[in-house]
């Protein structure tokens, strides 16, 4: 389903961020145009089978989010290749692409379009989304008037209304109040057990153990270990 082969990703970090021609020229003349290559990923290879839930763990800055971004096509790897079969719904961050001047209803269509849903699909699922988000009549209000909890609920409802072939999740399980958290967790479990291939990043080993079939452990941009969930988690915890 997903095939990641020898992927390396380097960021070129200039010592001070140059953002204007003047700064660039000054730096060039001074000979201070120094770059440092930072390897966020180094020769990472793994594959994910259809229907599998793959957890990704690692310390901060280990390259977890970078892997997800490379797979979802946002970043282009410096070297190596990624092949993906099936449509991806990324849930990297909820509510990206909301426009605060538009109403909740308009945002459902806008955000849905960004996530790649079709108009027909959104029309069909519109009522489900509103019902799940528990927004009721607020849906016709501009979302700049929403509370942050309402925003999260709306975003979560839009993002999880599909049954995508590949779902990419970056620690977003708990949003809203206690009851909505329970509801959203349940929805996630539904999605994950529904034959969807899931890539799942979390710092909570508990969740990982509970949900994942296999786990990928990244350390400083390299694959430290990949294998059975329990096994890797045990090794990670030591």
């Amino acid at each position: 389903m997903i095939e990641v082969k020898n992927v390396s990703m380097s960021f070129r970090i200039s010592q001070d961020r140059i953002q204007s021609i003047k700064e660039y020229l000054v730096a060039l003349i001074k000979g201070k145009l120094k770059y440092k290559d930072f390897w966020a990923l180094r020769d990472v290879s793994f594959s994910v089978h259809p229907g599998e839930v793959l957890g990704i763990i690692g310390h901060n800055g280990a390259g977890k989010s970078t892997v997800l971004k490379v797979i979802s096509g946002i970043l282009k790897p410096t070297s190596g290749s990624v092949s993906v079969h099936g449509n991806i719904v990324p849930m990297l961050e909820l509510g990206s692409g909301f426009d605060f001047d538009l109403t909740g209803r308009e945002n459902i269509f806008l955000n849905g379009a960004i996530l790649g849903y079709s108009r027909k699909f959104l029309n069909e699922k519109y009522d489900d989304i509103v019902a799940f988000s528990e927004l009721g009549e607020f849906i016709e209000m501009p979302i700049r008037n929403y509370s942050s909890g309402m925003l999260m609920r709306l975003a979560f409802s839009i993002a999880t209304v599909v049954n995508p072939e590949i779902l990419i999740v970056d620690e977003i399980l708990a949003v809203g109040d206690e009851s909505f958290q329970r509801k959203s967790r349940q929805r996630m479990m539904e999605l994950m057990s529904g034959g969807t291939t899931v890539l799942f990043v979390s710092h909570s080993l508990e969740q990982i153990r509970e949900m994942c079939d296999r786990v990928l452990w990244l350390d400083h941009g390299q694959v430290k270990m990949i294998g059975e969930a329990q096994e890797v988690c045990d090794a990670y915890q030591i």
Partner: peptide, 18 residues
């Protein structure tokens, strides 16, 4: 097409919104 439609209509709605 749908995304383009949505983005254009967003630009348009927000332009004179208030």
């Amino acid at each position: 097409r749908f995304l383009i439609q949505q983005l254009v209509s967003r630009d348009f709605k927000t332009k004179y919104k208030r």
